[in-house]
């Protein structure tokens, strides 16, 4: 869900004029007692300037360079879309690959700092087929972190969410600790009964991982390249600590398409 689905990758270029043009208006005094048009329209130079701001968003340019390079002639721009009408006796609706999640409290720094990432991103990073072949690094500067925190992004959610995100957080710590020399991980989250009964004692045995029953409060840093400072409460006590990488446990969100399919078919999402 992160970026491209929203088509947001933009390359700034110096030549693009910056501020958005403002529409000229007649003054309030000129408006009383008449119906003269308030907005007077762009003059030509402003209109052209404004139009030049357009980024001409386009992905594949249709330049056919890939086609020219492909020796096995696999690229074929004329392969058409297909439309199929099919009949079924039964349907199973699953979440699909759309890893959307509910918005995260902006105080936790996701979106502001490159070294604050989500659990789903971290899962990809840990994967052997992932962008770093499974090595744990900070996307801020490509360095291997010494201290990292995994923090609950939705501390006030239902039991199911708390449980599955906690288990994921512990599992990710297990992999990260196994892959990374001298790593320290702390996991900050409220803990519920089921987790306590089924998983806590085993999780506490993992060397290098410290589980903190508490609420994350904020993530900040003074400078782009400074370490992240995490504020959290532990048993009501205010704590403040610094980390090289922070992973936020998210709450998965089912995409609206899947939701509406599930509604129409009266099949719950599995």
């Amino acid at each position: 869900m992160i970026y491209e689905k929203n088509q947001r990758y933009i390359i700034p270029f110096d030549d693009v004029p910056s501020p958005r043009a403002e529409m000229p208006e007649i003054s309030v005094d000129e408006r009383r007692g008449n119906f003269v048009e308030v907005e007077t329209g762009f003059p030509e130079d402003i209109a052209v300037q404004e139009a030049k701001r357009c980024l001409s968003c386009r992905r594949c340019l249709g330049c056919a360079l890939c086609w020219a390079e492909c020796e096995s002639e696999a690229i074929d721009f004329s392969i058409p879309d297909e439309e199929l009408d099919l009949e079924f006796d039964d349907v199973v609706v699953t979440k699909g690959q759309d890893n959307s999640f509910f918005p995260i409290d902006p105080k936790l720094g996701f979106g502001s700092y490159a070294d604050v990432i989500t659990d789903i991103q971290f899962e990809r990073m840990l994967s052997p087929t992932g962008p770093t072949d499974g090595m744990v690094v900070s996307p801020l500067d490509g360095e291997i972190p010494k201290r990292m925190a995994i923090v609950q992004g939705h501390p006030n959610e239902d039991d199911d969410q708390l449980l599955s995100s906690l288990v994921l957080g512990v599992n990710e710590s297990i992999i990260a600790l196994d892959r990374t020399k001298d790593l320290e991980v702390i996991l900050v989250s409220p803990i519920n009964e089921v987790f306590k009964e089924q998983f806590l004692s085993n999780a506490e045995k993992i060397s290098g991982l410290r589980i903190v029953k508490g609420d994350p409060e904020s993530v900040e840093k003074d400078q782009e390249d400074a370490p992240l400072s995490l504020k959290y409460s532990e048993n009501g006590r205010q704590q403040d600590d610094t980390f090289d990488l922070i992973v936020i446990l998210t709450k998965p969100k089912i995409s609206s398409e899947i939701k509406s399919l599930s509604r129409k078919l009266e099949k719950p999402v599995q």
């Binding site: 869900m1 992160i2 970026y3 491209e4 689905k5 947001r8 990758y9 992905r59 594949c60 340019l61 330049c63 360079l65 890939c66 086609w67 390079e69 492909c70 020796e71 096995s72 690229i75 890893n99 989500t118 789903i120 991103q121 990809r124 990073m125 992932g130 962008p131 770093t132 996307p139």
Partner: peptide
């Protein structure tokens, strides 16, 4: 052979790797 991805001039965020 990856020939095409070496020459394609258009970069975009990688959804599969969650934008990394």
């Amino acid at each position: 052979c990856k020939a095409c991805i070496k020459v394609c001039p258009v970069n975009m965020f990688d959804d599969f790797d969650e934008g990394f």
